[in-house]
Design a protein around this nucleic acid. Structure first.
Ligand SMILES: [Zn+2]
Ligand SMILES: [Zn+2]
Ligand SMILES: [Zn+2]
Ligand SMILES: [Zn+2]
Lengths: 143, 143
DNA sequence: CATGTCTTTGAGAACGGGTATCATTATCGT
DNA sequence: ACGATAATGATACCCGTTCTCAAAGACATG
């Protein structure tokens, strides 16, 4: 599945952006191995940890391309650091709970929430294309 | 109502922080007059526009104190700028729609969404104290 | 009101995530 | 292999936010 996403993302990027590059490939492959959000710095560290000489600028460039193509979702948890996670085909996705105490980030899914959000999208004069939801509080260990 | 919030916030701040100051008072009074979120810079400009010599650092300090006291909600719309809006007593609040095209921010309320969020809060092992929701897309004028 | 103590304030430096720049390297059709 | 052109990496830069610190203000006391 993850491998599937990486391959698909690389193919899609090549179709829109003309050429392939090593940095972009490294970022996509590293990201495809994750199942929740990572910051650009975390991706940079992870890729570098594998011995690849990749610049932080290339990480941001790859993420920007992935974001424009809808292959990645930009997530803002309120700490001033943007995080990114793969967008799986079919629209299945999750949202995040952040512990105010220890900073832990946990994903969750909730179909009823998605339905409520769908209804809002339909009811207003807006053309809603995406939604962000973040829950805050104390996690099981911290409360 | 707005005046009510300002008075209450100032009283609450004085109770926790010992002394009152002119900058803090100016920020709270300006913020109490608004009904949706403002950035620190907008607050700074607004207060300065009234001829008060207030530093941007004091604006951030006031906002930090208000946030710690739960008197203000920090809102992150994903553009790298934190925004703040008064937290009204009773828990009534709204969320925001952001137009990807023109950048316009519009508030909306949706009881069904709040119910869905409440259910999530109760069902998991978390102790959820707050939630952020942002919808993105094209507004009525831009689509 | 004057004094002294402690807090708040404003200006600007410092910090950090993210972006722009640019010379160099890699890609890929030919 | 060659050459046009896009991608890359190092680093300078931008800008929102926080830190620092001397000066000003607030409050209790006499
Ligand atoms: Zn996630
Ligand atoms: Zn969702
Ligand atoms: Zn609002
Ligand atoms: Zn809500």
């Amino acid at each position: 599945m993850a491998q599937r996403w990486s391959d698909d993302a690389l193919a899609r990027l090549r179709a829109t952006s003309g050429r392939g590059g090593a940095a972009r490939r490294a970022v996509v492959e590293y990201l495809g191995r994750q199942n929740c959000c990572l910051s650009a710095q975390e991706i940079y560290d992870g890729v570098r940890g594998r011995g690849l000489r990749v610049g932080i600028a290339s990480v941001y460039r790859a993420l920007e391309g992935l974001d424009r193509g809808g292959l990645v979702q930009r997530i803002d948890l309120g700490d001033g650091v943007a995080r990114f996670e793969p967008v799986l085909p079919g629209g299945e996705h999750h949202h995040h709970f952040v512990c105010d105490d220890c900073g832990k980030v946990e994903p969750f899914e909730d179909p009823a929430l998605e339905v409520a959000l769908e209804r809002i999208a339909g009811g207003r004069g807006y053309d809603v294309e995406a939604h962000d939801v973040v829950l805050r509080g104390a996690c099981g260990e911290c409360r």
